[in-house]
Design a protein around this nucleic acid. Structure first.
Length: 746
DNA sequence: AGCACGCCGACT
DNA sequence: GTCGGCGTGCTC
């Protein structure tokens, strides 16, 4: 019932806080009402502080008592930063992931705009030569070589230079700039001409004909036919088949039409390579967005796309929400990659799934590319929801690697290396080719065990063993970071017989150095690449042929090219076969194929050795003998038989607390509420159960899994029960989260 | 989720 | 006598 005494306008605002509610405000005092519209950012009083919120709607009345409404403090924009399609996407994400609208909205903006900063491209400082600087003989500065170099740089470029260009020239340029300003040789300046790329400029930098094979051309043609309308393409291209070339030709086509392209990659480590290839090909400037950039840089990139002055955005997950006034195409590379699913904190959305929804809302095609597509995506292709495009050939002369399942039962092993493998390594090195060894555990050994009483050191905060790191002689927990100096005697029985048990990269490295004297071993794992730039350095050294054996973890599987590697071995493949999580077989298969993709990229054929104690495991056999697609179809059949995703849908409640009974009690409450709203046979409730790692970083963890063959039933249930759950008196010390379509059950 | 308000135990 | 523990309730 109306309670609006003055017939004043009511403004409904989304505020970035963990409340599933919108807040009503009055217009700011003395502000023209017709200038207020949905999508504008506002500064509002909230409790005893202030927040930046977003106008959602203009109303004639409020559900609140009118006298409780406060006026908006300030309206921060004259035009909405986001278009209606962007708001539509944000609303969809909020609904589907059951996450507060205000937070999703806020996360769609770069940090500076989120905080209320004016939406203007940060103006870059420029410097230029003064008249004196132009005529100055630089040799007069020979006692200040840095200053001289900077002055010469300016004299050579003969135009005003922006700070970013100077940073590229010399990271410490500001030190030499200051004296040059003082000597009146340089001055701050404006850019000579508009450096922004206009739509009339040529799209391509290099105009020679592109080389594409028939499969690439077919894929390009298929997508080009659908430009201007929604369609999902799953580009299944084996490693080295030239997916990037397909992307680039598609991008060229879209740029020619004056439209914008959004390219999403799973991780920042992959952006430089792609960025470089794009920059060599396209005349257009490329907006880059990932978490290693400064807030200013990300804001600039976001605004350049939003204002339409830039036509290519290359970024990670969050770039998905960048407004595109002239959308043409979305490309999402390595679509199977788990990094596309937000894992911790915040709204756990899948960038892949949201990209498809975004493309649909924008009415543009989306290309999902991978050498090892996710089972869900292949399932969608099976059902013609996605169109499958295959690139079965390696580009150029590169040959497919051959696989060998190496049965290591009853084999004599030297720290994880079987005798046949050692022989193959010797042979490969003798041909002056490189070897790549993969083991998915860093450190020296996953445990230190007492030989007389069996004691192992457990982390005091987690249900996990402490991993021995030989380099710093410490034991470390890989789950919470807890560390402990290596002890000489067993803490249980005082015996000095403490033995490292199991394999880590450090230990294998040590063995390799011993077995292959005068061969260079390079280890790549999180410990050896911690220093900034050290990964790049190692990769360069490897490609320069300065390494004989490359040893590493997961990070080897991602995108890097090792052209001289002809033998790839995975030392232990069995771990992934017997996990509690049904996703692990898919992960293992993807890992094997991705790691295998590092071998034999040029003229020489590659060989992939998988050490296993399960040489007749059906999934391994299918993968090795019949390839990834056959594996995927088999795995999908198993999922179907067990009613697992993608043949059903999951929502996972995770609960954690410092006291076990607090966590279990709350998880029990989740089950009770779920059952209250559930209809028989609609949604299966599994739990409460302790999480697979029941204690982590000092917290006890429980979970409740909801499973349904009908997505709507699952979401209807959540829509009904979540308000009740939020209404429960808050239990101190208990935190919980909801994960829609979880990709791991840990 | 924060944050303030408020009502009971160990300190100066 | 207060400082501060965290239970409770509110945010338009």
């Amino acid at each position: 019932m109306p309670n609006n005494p003055s017939q004043s306008m009511v403004i409904r605002v989304a505020i970035p806080i963990h409340l599933h509610r919108l807040f009503d405000y009055l217009p700011p005092v003395d502000y023209p009402l017709d200038a207020i519209k949905p999508g504008l950012r506002v500064k509002v009083p909230f409790g005893n502080s202030h927040k930046v919120g977003f106008i959602i709607a203009l109303l004639a009345d409020s559900h609140m008592d009118f006298h409780k409404l406060k006026p908006i403090e300030a309206i921060l924009d004259t035009q909405p930063l986001l278009a209606d399609v962007d708001l539509e996407l944000i609303a969809w994400v909020s609904r589907y992931y059951h996450y507060p609208l205000g937070i999703v909205y806020s996360n769609a903006l770069p940090a500076l705009l989120r905080q209320g900063r004016a939406a203007e491209l940060p103006v870059e400082e420029y410097y230029a030569l003064t008249d004196l600087g132009q005529t100055m003989d630089s040799s007069q500065l020979k006692r200040a070589p840095k200053q001289k170099a900077l002055l010469v740089h300016f004299q050579q470029q003969a135009m005003p230079l922006p700070a970013s260009a100077l940073s590229a020239f010399d990271s410490k340029w500001r030190n030499s700039l200051k004296p040059l300003l003082e000597k009146m040789l340089l001055q701050s300046s404006q850019p000579t001409s508009v450096s922004q790329v206009s739509n009339t400029q040529p799209v391509l930098l290099r105009s020679e004909a592109f080389a594409s094979n028939p499969a690439q051309q077919a894929a390009i043609d298929a997508v080009c036919q659908q430009l201007g309308q929604f369609k999902v393409f799953l580009l299944h291209g084996v490693t080295g088949s030239g997916k990037t070339e397909v992307y680039m030709q598609l991008i060229a086509k879209v740029l020619e039409q004056g439209q914008q392209v959004l390219v999403l990659v799973p991780e920042i480590t992959l952006t430089p390579q792609l960025q470089q290839r794009f920059q060599q090909r396209f005349a257009a400037s490329i907006a880059i967005s990932h978490s290693r950039l400064s807030d200013n840089q990300r804001t600039a990139a976001w605004l350049a796309m939003q204002q339409g002055t830039c036509n290519i955005m290359l970024g990670t997950r969050s770039a998905l929400f960048t407004p595109l006034p002239r959308p043409g195409l979305i490309i999402l590379d390595e679509e199977h990659d788990a990094s596309f699913k937000q894992q911790e904190g915040g709204c756990r959305f899948s960038a892949r799934d949201v990209a498809v929804v975004r493309a649909k809302m924008l009415g543009v095609p989306v290309v999902l590319g991978s050498a090892t597509p996710a089972l869900e995506s292949l399932h969608n292709a099976n059902h013609n929801r996605y169109q499958l495009l295959r690139l079965p050939q390696r580009a150029g002369n590169a040959l497919r690697p051959s696989f060998q399942l190496l049965d290591i039962r009853n084999q004599k092993m030297q720290d994880g290396l079987s005798a046949p493998l050692i022989t193959q390594i010797h042979e490969t090195l003798a041909r002056d080719e490189q070897v790549l060894l993969f083991i998915n555990r860093r450190g020296f050994a996953p445990t230190l065990i007492c030989h007389s009483c069996g004691w192992v050191m457990r982390c005091k905060h987690c249900d996990a063993n402490m991993v021995l790191h030989a380099k710093d002689n410490r034991l470390r927990c890989h789950h919470c970071g807890y560390g402990h100096a290596r002890m000489l005697n067993c803490l249980a029985c005082q015996s000095p017989q403490l033995t490292p048990l199991g394999l880590g990269t450090e230990r294998v490295e040590q063995t390799l150095v011993r077995l292959f004297t005068n061969k260079k071993v390079v280890r790549l794992d999180r410990d050896s690449t911690k220093r900034k730039g050290s990964l790049e350095q190692s990769l360069e050294a490897i490609n320069a042929g300065e390494a004989d054996i490359i040893l590493g973890t997961q990070m080897l599987a991602k995108g890097h090219h090792f052209s001289k590697v002809t033998l790839v071995a995975m030392l232990d493949v069995d771990g992934g076969l017997f996990s509690v999580d049904f996703h692990s077989a898919e992960r293992l298969a993807q890992l094997i194929v991705q790691v295998a993709g590092r071998a034999g990229r040029e003229q020489k054929p590659g060989r992939v050795v998988l050490q296993t104690r399960q040489p007749s495991h059906p999934l391994l056999l299918t993968l090795v003998q019949r390839g990834y697609t056959a594996f995927a179809q088999t795995a999908l059949q198993e999922r179907q038989d067990a009613f697992l995703p993608p043949f059903s849908y999951h929502a996972l409640f995770r609960v954690q607390a410092s006291q076990e009974q607090w966590a279990s009690k709350f998880a029990e409450l989740v089950v009770v509420l779920t059952n209250r709203f559930n209809s028989p046979g609609e949604v299966m409730v599994l739990g409460p159960v302790p999480a697979p790692m029941a204690r982590k970083a000092g917290y006890y963890r429980y979970q409740v899994l909801l499973q349904s063959v009908a997505r709507v039933s699952l979401h209807k249930l959540l829509d009904n029960m979540l308000p009740e759950l939020y209404n429960q008196p808050r239990v101190m010390g208990v935190s919980w989260s909801l994960d829609i379509d979880p990709i791991d059950l840990y």
